[in-house]
Simulated assay, not measured.
Amino acid sequence: MFERVLIKLSGESLMGEQDYGTDPERIRAIARQVSQVHARGVEVAVVVGGGNIFRGLAAQASGMDRATGDYMGMLATVLNALALQDALEKQGVPTRVQSAIAISEVAEPYIRRRAMRHLEKGRVVIFAAGTGNPFFTTDTAAALRAIEMHAEIILMAKNGVEGVYTADPMKDPDAVFIPEITHMEAVEKRLRVMDSTALTLCMENRLPIIVFNMSDEQNIDRIVCGDRVGTLVRT
């Protein structure tokens, strides 16, 4: 069984069947899954994306300055973090949100030692606002925070797909599921595990990743207990 894990949730994983925004039932389902592994004594950190609300790249395509768009995206992740915190606390799970940008009225500033202490005391820590810098994705934030927290593994939650495939299974019916792959192979083949900066960080620090389907509410618990679920990415 893993003792400390970091879960990466994309903004899209919070949408449910909606076109944008957050689906309260989906957030409750995620909170139930996190609560289940937390009850086992596993220390859980979470990094949330903001793509369900705002994407800096999409804003850049429409003419906005990329840095401005990315900062707006960081604020979107704070909204998602607060929604998840509320759902977790309703499950009886003590939770703290730490933000990489100053927003002291609603979240603590990101302080590594404080975050480590929260985990040691059995609190779930949600990291918001990415790395606090534009031009870096929340995937990179997940890799960075996992390394800083000494997490044993990153759990990359995906919507409706079982793991990593040779192509996008939503678009290519001939896409083949890959049960195990190395970080380097994922980078070289440009597979959609996470962005290349994040993958390289994980590879250099020998941090494994499991890419799995968030739709099955038992998957996180199975992974934490050592079952093979989804795709394992390791050096």
Rank of each mutant, 00 (worst) to 15 (best):
G73Y: 01
G73Q: 01
L75E: 10
A76H: 05
N80W: 01
Q85T: 02
D86V: 11
A87E: 01
A87M: 01
L88S: 02
L88G: 03
T95V: 09
S99L: 00
I101L: 14
I101R: 00
I101E: 03
I103F: 09
I103Q: 05
I103R: 04
I103A: 10
I103K: 03
S104E: 13
A107T: 08
A107R: 00
Y110N: 06
R112E: 03
R113N: 15
R114Y: 05
H118F: 14
R123E: 11
R123P: 05
I126M: 03
F127E: 00
A128T: 07
G130K: 00
G130I: 01
G132A: 06
N133C: 11
T137D: 09
T138Q: 04
D139S: 09
D139G: 09
T140H: 09
T140S: 12
A143T: 00
I147S: 11
I154G: 13
A157F: 10
A157T: 00
G160Q: 05
V164P: 07
V164Y: 12
Y165E: 01
T166L: 03
T166Y: 05
P169S: 01
P169R: 00
D174E: 15
D174Y: 11
V176P: 11
I181P: 04
I181L: 14
A186E: 12
A186W: 05
A186L: 10
E188Q: 15
V193I: 12
S196V: 13
S196A: 12
T197M: 12
A198N: 06
L199S: 06
L199D: 14
L201N: 13
E204M: 12
E204A: 12
P208A: 06
I209A: 09
V211L: 04
E217I: 02
E217D: 09
Q218M: 06
